[in-house]
Structure formats: structure tokens, C-alpha cells
């Protein structure tokens, strides 16, 4: 492996991180939206969301990315590879995040809401000031876990030709006839990125514990 090869894998890593971060930024609030629809039990929508989440959770990312990339153009919506990749991973993680948010919403103590209602606090304010800060804290460990899962399925976008870490490593292996060294470099990158997420979560939890003590 020459210096150019390391650079190629690093460029792949930038794509891995970009795809993952965009997916997290889109999928986390979308999941919360779906969870709120189910929590508030909107008629019809509630059932639709439940079915959609169940279907998406059962769909492999590889199959979904092929569907998004090849089928959307037939209905006149042509997405570039990168956008198709982000859209796919977002759909998948949105479904998982919906379940995470829903679990924390269902565990939310209802008496706090009753108290806020007794003080005449409007619904939007109740959500923003009372529910949201608490469910974010409760959901954080599960959300971070889901974020590491996104990074682990992100190579699926290589199937439609996005050159991310894994794909870059495979190409170098094919060109140099020595597949193992680039794979080890890719492996080190994934360990560092996923390890970074887990370390950030631990730090946030520690800081929160200190805040709770103070």
C-alpha cells in the first residue's frame, strides 16, 4: 500500500462519516415524529406508522438502497447516489429510533403532565419544557447504540457505487492483489469512529451524573 492508497481510504472514511452523520441528523428527529404520532394515538395514522416501522425494521439496508436508487427514477424522482444512500439509511434508522423514542415516551411519568396541565401550560410548551429534556436523557444510550449500528450498515451504500471506507479498501485490495492490509486499515477506522461514539456517550452520561449531584 502506497501513500495514495491510504489517502483513498481516508477519502472513503470521510464519506462514511458524512453519510452516517447526515443519517443521524435526519433519522433521529424523524423517529421522534413517528413516535409522537403513535404516542398521541392519531386514528389511522397510528396503524400506518406501526406497519411502516415493522416493515422497515425487517428490511435489509442492501435491499432498500437498491429499491431507492433504482425504483425512484421510474416515478420521476432521480436521486444522486450519495443522496439515495442517505435516504435509505435514514428510513431504516427512523424506524428503529421511533421504537426507542416510543419506549421512553411510554415510560414517561404521567403525573408530571397532569401537574403542568393543572398550571394551564399549553401543549407545545409542555412538550418542549417538560417532556423533551427528560426523554432525550432517557433515550440517549439507546440512540447512541443505534448510531453505532448506522455506521456498521453504512457500507450498504457501496452497493449503488458510493465509495465509502469498505469499498475503498476493496478497490485497493483488488488493485494491489494484497487484500488484507487495506482491510485492516478500514477496520482501524471503524473501530476509531464507533469507539468515538461510545466514548462521547460515556462522557455525556458522566457529565450528567455530576450535574445531578451538584
Amino acid at each position: 500500500m502506497g501513500p495514495g492508497d491510504y489517502l483513498a481510504i481516508a477519502a472513503g472514511a470521510v464519506n462514511t462519516i458524512a453519510v452516517s452523520l447526515l443519517t443521524i441528523a435526519l433519522g433521529t428527529p424523524l423517529g421522534l415524529g413517528l413516535a409522537l404520532i403513535r404516542w398521541r394515538k392519531f386514528p389511522i395514522l397510528d396503524g400506518l406508522v406501526a406497519a411502516l416501522v415493522s416493515l422497515l425494521r425487517a428490511t435489509p439496508s442492501v435491499t432498500l438502497v437498491l429499491l431507492v436508487y433504482f425504483a425512484l427514477p421510474t416515478v420521476g424522482l432521480e436521486l444522486p447516489r450519495f443522496a439515495a444512500g442517505v435516504a435509505t439509511l435514514t428510513l431504516g434508522t427512523m424506524a428503529y429510533n421511533c421504537e426507542i423514542w416510543r419506549a421512553t415516551l411510554l415510560a414517561f411519568p404521567i403525573d408530571q403532565l397532569d401537574a403542568a396541565r393543572a398550571f394551564g401550560m399549553p401543549r407545545a410548551l409542555r412538550f418542549r419544557l417538560i417532556i423533551l429534556p427528560q426523554i432525550v436523557r432517557a433515550a440517549l444510550p439507546a440512540l447512541v447504540n443505534e448510531m453505532t449500528l448506522i455506521i456498521k450498515v453504512s457500507p450498504a451504500v457501496a452497493v449503488i457505487g458510493v465509495i465509502e471506507t469498505t469499498r475503498a479498501a476493496v478497490r485497493i485490495g483488488a488493485a494491489t492483489y494484497r487484500p488484507i492490509p487495506p482491510f485492516l486499515v478500514a477496520l482501524a477506522i471503524y473501530v476509531a469512529v464507533i469507539g468515538g461514539f461510545v466514548a462521547t456517550q460515556r462522557m455525556l452520561e458522566r457529565r450528567r451524573r455530576v450535574e445531578a449531584l451538584a
Binding site: 457500507p155 479498501a169 485490495g173 487484500p179 488484507i180 471503524y190 464507533i194
Partner: peptide
């Protein structure tokens, strides 16, 4: 712990190209 940090697709390639080598 290491295995839990590896994406399955990368692992799959490692087995597929690694075993012959």
C-alpha cells in the same frame, strides 16, 4: 468487542478475500 465494531460487509469481504490468501 472488536467484532462488534466491524461492519458485517467488511467482515464478509475479509473472509471472502482473506481465506484464499
Amino acid at each position: 468487542d472488536l467484532m462488534r465494531c466491524v461492519p458485517f460487509m467488511l467482515f464478509c469481504y475479509m473472509i471472502y478475500y482473506g481465506l484464499p490468501s
